Simulated scan of single mutants.
Amino acid sequence: MISGVVLYAIAIFLLGISFQKNRSKTKKAIVKARKMMLNLLPDILSIMILVGLSLSILTPSFISAVIGDDSGIVGVILATILGSVALIPSFIVFPLGQTILHNGGGLPQVAVLMSTLMSVGVLTLPVEKKIFGSRFAYARNGAGIVMSLLFAVLVWGVWK
Rank of each mutant, 00 (worst) to 15 (best):
M1P: 09
I73W: 13
V93G: 10
L113K: 03
M118Y: 02
S64G: 02
I88K: 06
G68I: 08
V6P: 02
L45M: 11
H102P: 00
F91K: 11
S61L: 04
K129D: 08
F132G: 14
V76C: 08
V85F: 15
S134H: 12
N141I: 12
V74L: 15
N141H: 14
S24R: 11
K28A: 12
I47Q: 04
F19L: 15
S148Y: 13
N39Q: 06
K32S: 02
L55N: 09
L78A: 15
L58P: 01
M114Y: 01
L7K: 14
R140A: 15
S56K: 11
M37Y: 09
M48P: 03
G133V: 11
R23V: 11
L15P: 07
L125T: 07
S24F: 06
A139G: 14
A139C: 14
P42G: 02
I49L: 12
L117Y: 05
Q20P: 00
V5F: 11
S46L: 12
L58G: 04
L117P: 07
S64P: 01
A139N: 14
L14Y: 06
V158Y: 14
F132Q: 11
G52E: 05
S64E: 01
K160N: 15
R34Q: 01
K27D: 04
Y138L: 14
V122W: 12
I100T: 05
S148G: 15
A79S: 14
A143C: 15
V5E: 12
A137Q: 12
G75M: 07
P60T: 05
T80R: 06
P108Y: 07
